[in-house]
Design a protein around this nucleic acid. Structure first.
Lengths: 214, 214, 214, 214
DNA sequence: TATGAATGAGAATTCATTCAT
DNA sequence: GATGAATGAATTCTCATTCAT
């Protein structure tokens, strides 16, 4: 394995399951959530096959076997991460923001100082586990996203091709993905550590260039 | 553009017309190239850990052991793919295009009808093997790319922060990545099957919004 | 003497009387010991590279993966065998026998009728895994052995070179090794099946010739 | 592999077969000898399974495939080494030395300053390839050796057991083996670098203690 | 519910050997 | 006779998963 784990590839000794001080023991719901959180980060950062269930369990501080107990399999856990993220994302954009606030929202989400969940949830949409079901979810989510985004754009005079807005919305989406990816996987400065106030202006420009308001 | 670099098809050994089956035997350079091509596609599509050396060897139609023979290890093969791609990318943009041709060039590269190499080479830059050396190459390439791109932009009146151009260039780069990723890993229409003539206009808009000409 | 150290047979889990088949399950310490015992024999007999981890696991009747679980790697297992053997050897000679009992002790150890552990532990000291750490242990052990042996020898009138005793002790050690090796790897009669009463006299002669008592 | 080759595990690049300056090319007998010499050293030092045919071929500066060409297989090469060594050893002791010269001869052989062949040939007798045929040769050689050695010893008054001389001779042989082994595989001082004049006296003592002259 | 021991499938890599030139 | 490309059979090690407690 070549995951870039901080720990210097310690030969995982037998009997170091976790046991974070015996707190939160015997709490099914809590354990589930712990695993989901850990998994989302790992999957987003290292991809599906770059992540081992042991990594996740260790991060969560629980026993590996519980992954299978609660999620049946690694793929099950991945699917759960995905649907969970989708739900949260849906809720995040459900507000149906006015168009001129979209850049602000995106910029904010991308740079939320507390290493917010948004980038991870987004990244997850690009990760494939090879599981058909999960892939369908991904596609469905992306589709609905871009449609909603396209809907915010104004119709330009002489527009015949309805697809054009959709294409542009998908390009905006793609740009967001690209930014998250680059920030997540490289140390490319200044992009990697740009803050909200840095990202907002160019994003506003980008969006208004592709999706002019109605 | 659409430079395909079809890697001038190995000098076939005498007496192997061109039939199916196992022609091209006993040709070290040819085998190497075959492996590189197969590996680039697999790595770009499935990521480093999602790819099996056996997959690659099978795609290339050669024995697995040859990967270690020619590239020492899976990581060695990955590094070779990366540097190879970098070289080709460098050459591709070496032309130092005038700014107003950049969108055209990008659009062309992204949509080359014959599933050209460009997207794969680009995608590769986002894949990590955990190998320090390879990661350094990736970063270096991205950096030099964005700098060159930034250099094509005009200085705006009152510009004090030189980083701004760089940031914008990196966002353009990110957008390209995002488009390639989405096209590669999902069937999101209309983006997935948009052709050059579809992508050109929005890309032109995007670029001139972020990197106004001098 | 003939200390057999039969490794006080793992605490069998309740409800597994002593029948054949796969008793002793779910007993980490027992499994570890089982692997060590099997490994010591194999390594001693076939050398490091002549031994397969699968051989060892099969001998021990456990799954191969457990070798990596408990000892990290084949080399780790080898090192564990070595240090284990060293400890036992140290204990075996710790008694600081009076010189005139040394031949008896050696003869006893070499011929313990139940194919005792001693020869294996000794043989192990001649096997190299290429692992630096393990090699250092070997050397250290041999050194301390021969020093202790040399110390039992009397000083001869006019002795100036202190090294002489050490050299002689090492030759005695070498002879012991040679005997063990020949017995282990060939069917050379009568040496191969000589018993304690056969070996004792010549060993006594050999030792008193090289290490005359004080 | 963990052979302790000096070269820092250079990833053997394709196309570095050997070609020692194109001298001695197309010389079947020469090549054979070259391979035998290289093989004897490797086998003696690293054992059968610790040695790779590539190691041997590289040492000899010839192509690997020639091993199979000339010796059919790795085992064939090993057997050839063994019989070759046996022949040389036979010749070495054929002189039927007077008993009082045996220690001198052995000490000389063990320490021959030019890293003589003797220790290697001797060591080879302890290495097993798992090949029945080879093992038979080894045993046969050891037997004839010890018999010849026993024959030099004088009959003691009241000797009834004829085997006693043979046993003693085998112990002398074993001691020689042990010394060679220790010298070859460890850096145990002073034994490791003892010269002929150091080894001669104790060996003389050892031999006369076990095999008193007639 | 939680734990850690155990397992089998599969991954990368090495190696002796054969083939074509 | 000699070379190096190619191959298939191991070998070590990792990983997801299941079992017994």
């Amino acid at each position: 394995m070549t995951t870039q784990t901080p720990e210097p590839t310690a030969p995982r000794p037998p009997g170091s399951g976790g046991g974070a001080g015996d707190a939160r023991r015997r709490d099914a719901a809590g354990t589930r959530r712990l695993l989901l959180d850990a998994a989302r980060h790992r999957f987003a950062r290292d991809g599906y096959s770059g992540t081992t269930v042991r990594d996740i369990a260790d991060d969560a501080g629980v026993n590996v076997a519980l992954i299978n107990r609660y999620f049946t399999s690694k793929e099950g856990l991945f699917a759960a991460c995905l649907t969970g993220s989708v739900n949260d994302l849906e809720r995040a954009v459900a507000a149906d923001l006015p168009l001129d606030q979209v850049p602000l929202s995106i910029a904010g989400q991308l740079t939320s100082p507390d290493a917010g969940e948004f980038p991870h949830r987004l990244l997850l949409l690009l990760r494939s586990s090879g599981d058909e079901r999960a892939d369908e979810i991904r596609l469905q989510t992306l589709r609905s996203f871009s449609e909603r985004l396209a809907a915010t754009a104004g119709r330009q005079p002489g527009d015949t091709d309805g697809d054009r807005h959709l294409l542009h919305a998908q390009i905006v989406l793609a740009a967001s993905f690209g930014i998250v990816m680059l920030r997540a996987s490289t140390a490319l400065e200044p992009l990697a550590s740009a803050g909200e106030q840095d990202l907002l202006p160019p994003l506003r420009d980008l969006i208004s260039a592709l999706l002019p308001p109605k």
